[in-house]
Design a protein around this nucleic acid. Sequence first.
DNA 1: TGGGCTTTCCT
DNA 2: GGAAAGCCC
Length: 508
Amino acid sequence: MSKSIQIVWFKRDLRLRDHAPLAEASCRNEPTVLLYIIEPMLINDPHFDIRHWRFITQSITDLNEQLSAKGACITLVIGNAEQAFASIAKQFTIARVLSYEEVGLDNTYQRDKRLKAWFNGHGIDWLEFANGGVTRGLNNRRNWKQQWHDYLRRPVDDPALEALQVIEPESLGTPLSLSNAVKVHHLDDTTDIISSLNALTAPAQTFQPGGEKRAWYTLNHFLAERGIRYAQQISSPSLARKSCSRLSPYLAWGNITPRQVLNRLNSKKSDSDWRRTVKAFSSRIQWRSHFIQKFESECSMEISPVNKAYENYPYAGALDAEPKVTAWQRGETGFPLIDACIRAVIATGYLNFRMRAMLVSFLTHHLNVDWRKGVVFLGRQFLDFEPGIHYPQFQMQASVTGTNTIRLYNPLKQALDHDKDGRFTRKWVPELAEVPDDLIHSPWKLSAMEQRLYGVELGRDYPLPIIDIEQASREARDRLWSFRERDDVKREARRILSKHTIPGSPRT
DNA sequence: TGGGCTTTCCT
DNA sequence: GGAAAGCCC
């Protein structure tokens, strides 16, 4: 009979503090494997790219540094999850697996169902813990706010790390070394993945670095100075980069929890200078969980509109849509703020909320392109990509819910309201750097002489607008508001409201 | 966490 | 005649 062990499976929860599965494992006096699995299925998934894998390996390195101070280490496996558990089961008797519930893409959901069956067949208990105030299998929102507040009130789940007996399996495939000194166990057929992960060593200064330590540094810096004008500057694409918390990737990849963040925010509650920040920021942390809960309750949102009637929405045909999508993805639409936003998010993985909403509105409303033609591309650009926020938000901004108000962002008005001096636009669209403030957002108005004067030839250095914005706005408004009046849209809207909203709350 | 147009209310 | 509120798409 082989030795009995338990496994703490780290999914998207790359931290040691406030970690319920780890805390539970530390209460049991048993040998424990701390397992992180990098799966080819996800490496090949177009929602993710090198920026995410770099963030994850940085986070694992951080975990391992903390663990090695206690004489422990993480077991990092590259390979599919079923194979990883099967390999460990050859060496040990797995008594139980402890992990969080994951609100993820369909491929991880299907994997979990396969694993559940495999665990059942092998007499392995799988203890899954609710994550961040989100409840699995919820059919309505009657008690959701109460559950959320209960989650916040309960003490953090800090594990007793010194009580944990961490062990590492002997051999899982060929051990290789990731350049950051973390040992990697890689199962068959993953050598190409190892080499591409090793190629990640090149520093990418423009992306936020991953890790639990970095998450706390970011939070503390936000509350020490950066965040004092949070509420006023949140909408500005340039100022938001400093005065927003920038915690989103750390929350998405589980370096820190909403509860830890809000507990830390308490220290500012009595400071009147920070009153607006505390109020605005804490409501957004809750809003975040609210969206993840939507996706948990309706995961079909990854592939179809939550309001099924929108399957028949009159989007542009494929031939018409393709060049528009390409221009949008490349930041070559001829609308300077739109192009600046796309280029900024590709280069840095970050964009403030309002500008993200504007990009979705422009694609789906002004260009009249099906939201599904842009949703994966944009998700991949976000370092903080979180399926549970991305899909419900994308659908809401694309107005395919039939319940929220229609948000048709005028890129020129947004530019005047939030980038009047063109600071952000000039940074990311340097072709227009010399154009003066009053023309930077409408370069198509430049005369031939002005184009020579400001060093930009329209149609060569910077594109002419791919659509007539006034006509497109008018058409989008008519299309959207008239579609909403259809009986099938209204019927679906009633179903959605009863499932996803808190009774009595105002509809926005 | 929209926007454009109209109405209303104030100076 | 301008700002805020209201209305409708």
